[in-house]
C-alpha cells in the first residue's frame, strides 16, 4: 500500500518575506553573473590561551579584513576561542603530502638561498593524517623554501611529519587586543548549547498526567 500524499501540488509561496520580494516569480533561472569568485583565505583558531593554533578551514572574501570577520562568524560562533588569524590561501607554502614512515621533510627540494630580507614565518605540521594542521612555532628565513629547511632543523628531528605549511607572518591578519572583545560574550550565549534545553521535568509531569488520566 502506498501512503497518500495530501499536498502534492505546486503552491503559491507562503513565506511572507518571499511574497514581499520584488520580482518574485517573474525572472527566469539563469546562471548568475560570474562575480563572486572571491579570494580564499585559510583560517587558524586558538581555542584557549597556551594551546597551539590549529587550521580550521577557509572563507571566501574580498579582502583580508572581511575574511577575518567571516572567519569569526563561521568558526567561532560557539566553543571557546581566544584568538584567530587569516591569510590568503596563495600565501601558504606547502610541502609534499606523505604517508607511512616518510616524513615530508625528507622530500623537500634542495634549499636555495633567498635574496630578500630575512623575515619571520609561522610553521604548521600535519602529524596525523585526517586531522588538522597544528602550529609548532616560527622560523626566520629569506624565502619560503629556506623557511621549510629552517623548520626541518628546528622542528623536524625524530618525528614523522606528513605535511608542512609555512606562512610569511607579514601576510597574516592577526587578532589584536581590541579584537578580543569579539569572544567575551560567547559564554553568555547559552541558547546555542544543547545543555540549555532541559525538558525532563516537563516531560515527566506530562507522562504522570497521562498515566493518571487513563
Amino acid at each position: 500500500m502506498l501512503l497518500n500524499r495530501s499536498i502534492a501540488f505546486m503552491m503559491k509561496p507562503i513565506d511572507p518575506r518571499v511574497n514581499r520580494l520584488p520580482g518574485f516569480g517573474q525572472g527566469s533561472i539563469q546562471p548568475k553573473a560570474p562575480l563572486d569568485q572571491l579570494g580564499t583565505y585559510e583560517v587558524f583558531v586558538q581555542a584557549k590561551e597556551g594551546k597551539p593554533f590549529q587550521h580550521e578551514g577557509i572563507v571566501h572574501a574580498s579582502d583580508i579584513e572581511l575574511a577575518y570577520i567571516l572567519a569569526k562568524e563561521t568558526f567561532t560562533r560557539r566553543f571557546t576561542c581566544v584568538s584567530l588569524y587569516v591569510t590568503e590561501t596563495r600565501d601558504v607554502y606547502v610541502s609534499p603530502l606523505t604517508d607511512g614512515q616518510t616524513s615530508s621533510y625528507e622530500l623537500l627540494p634542495p634549499a636555495t638561498a633567498g635574496n630578500g630580507p630575512t623575515e619571520a614565518y609561522e610553521v604548521y605540521h600535519l602529524v596525523k593524517r585526517g586531522k588538522q594542521h597544528v602550529h609548532v612555532g616560527e622560523v626566520m628565513a629569506s624565502s619560503p623554501q629556506e623557511a621549510m629547511h629552517s623548520a626541518k632543523e628546528k622542528f623536524g628531528a625524530g618525528k614523522v611529519v606528513y605535511n608542512v605549511w609555512v606562512i610569511r607572518k607579514s601576510n597574516i591578519r592577526y587578532t589584536n587586543e581590541a579584537d578580543k572583545d569579539l569572544w567575551l560574550t560567547l559564554p553568555e550565549k547559552k541558547y546555542r548549547d544543547a545543555a540549555d534545553y532541559k525538558a525532563g521535568d516537563k516531560l515527566t509531569a506530562f507522562l504522570e498526567r497521562v498515566k493518571h488520566s487513563v
Binding site: L35, S62, T89
Partner: peptide
C-alpha cells in the same frame, strides 16, 4: 546581491582551491 559583488571586485582578487 549582484551590486555588492560588483562593488567588491578587485583586480588583486584571486580564487585559489582551498588547501584542506
Amino acid at each position: 546581491g549582484q551590486w555588492v559583488r560588483e562593488a567588491l571586485k578587485s583586480p588583486s582578487l584571486r580564487y585559489v582551491t582551498p588547501l584542506a
